[in-house]
Design a protein around this nucleic acid. Structure first.
Lengths: 210, 210
DNA sequence: AGTGTCGTGTAACCTTTGTTACCGATTACC
DNA sequence: GGTAATCGGTAACAAAGGTTACACGACACT
């Protein structure tokens, strides 16, 4: 574990902190589609992603979903940080977008390390910052963009985090991610294909115009 | 200044920190409508609100606006915190919603106090948490609600922060806040009035159903 | 091969929201 | 008092997105 940790976070954290993490942290490998956290669930720990990607999404009472953003290698989940401060319940759902390796850190350590390690403080603040910016991005998309632009952006995001211009997914799944209906997505995807921006296949989409 | 400071933040910060704030902080009184910060502007300092309320909004390249949330007495602006970490440019615009009194703290002090005062650390983290939750709320509104519900929610928010069920505003201004057109707002306001949830006057709206 | 399920394309229609245009009332300013 | 600007109501229409229904091919399972 310490090896993968050093590789991803070595330049960030001082040796003593790396050691602390590897002592109390719990290595976890989860397959694609695995649900790491759900809305209303108490927070068990804070994840440090070593490899893979996680989809963070929001749901309302009626079951409508919306993807907020993805987190990747080197990231952590600000919502988790957040919950250590105030309430203990998660406001979001986290689902592994690809096979993912991560370290879970018990929440008790956080305040502790905040006082001790400057690098930890900076990491936490940076994470909050990054997540706030992602949320701003999300808000920009929903508030200012039409569905076809949101769709294209979503496809590019997915291509980016999987590092593959061919996305394995269905129209139905995209519709859920963007909180709209399958018919609408099929319609717009066809339009994007006619514009030469993507290529459609059964169960996959190739993004041309990255 | 130290008096107003103690009154609003005394229970949060230890005496030494309060003293530090009152030494380096700069007291500011701004009138309603005053623009405290704009998108792209470098961040000068971090505001602690003593009295009043500030509207935080986002704008895209085309000039479309959207209100993100309001901050009030006892709050600070997470975007400012955020900018001390990464870039130095503001991502948002801040406009005084009412006459407002605040203390500006130079950004240099932040990292300093983070190491020294536990209460400061907790305040910063709590602020980040609060702001993230507000952003989630905003996303919920835009993503899951129809315009009439968003409108009603906006009116209630405004009533809340001004502590007055009569809102002084125009349909045009509301339309800007919600990134839609005046005609749409007029239409929906009329509907809400017919439903008995509000009462319309020239330049003001009374929220019945708080 | 036969059956059922899943993924996709498409048409028809409805609702919500955005746009343009116009009008009357109120207010501000000279 | 006259004039211009602002504010709000409304109609008519356009565009975007949501809904329902159905067809057809791919695929899985037996």
């Amino acid at each position: 574990m310490i090896e993968a940790l050093k590789q991803n976070y070595g330049y960030l954290f001082e040796p003593a902190l790396l050691e602390g993490i590897s002592n109390v942290g719990q290595l976890k490998k989860v397959p694609e589609g695995f649900q790491l956290m759900d809305i209303g669930e108490p927070i068990k720990g804070m994840p440090l992603i070593l490899d893979g990607a996680i989809k963070i999404l929001r749901e309302d009472e009626k079951g409508n979903e919306l993807v907020l953003y993805f987190i990747e290698r080197g990231d952590t989940c600000a919502m988790t940080l957040s919950c250590c401060v105030g309430m203990a319940k998660s406001e979001i759902r986290a689902v592994a977008e690809t096979d993912t390796t991560l370290i879970m850190i018990p929440v008790e350590k956080m305040e502790n390390w905040m006082a001790t390690y400057k690098s930890w403080r900076q990491f936490i603040l940076q994470s909050y910052h990054d997540r706030l910016m992602e949320m701003l991005d999300t808000i920009d998309s929903i508030a200012f963009l039409k569905m076809d632009e949101r769709l294209l952006r979503h496809l590019r995001d997915k291509a980016m985090i999987t590092r593959d211009d061919v996305i394995q997914t269905t129209h139905q799944e995209i519709a859920q991610d963007l909180n709209t209906s399958r018919v609408v997505i099929s319609r717009l995807l066809k339009k994007l294909e006619n514009q030469g921006k993507i290529q459609l296949f059964r169960n996959s989409i190739k993004v041309i115009d990255l």
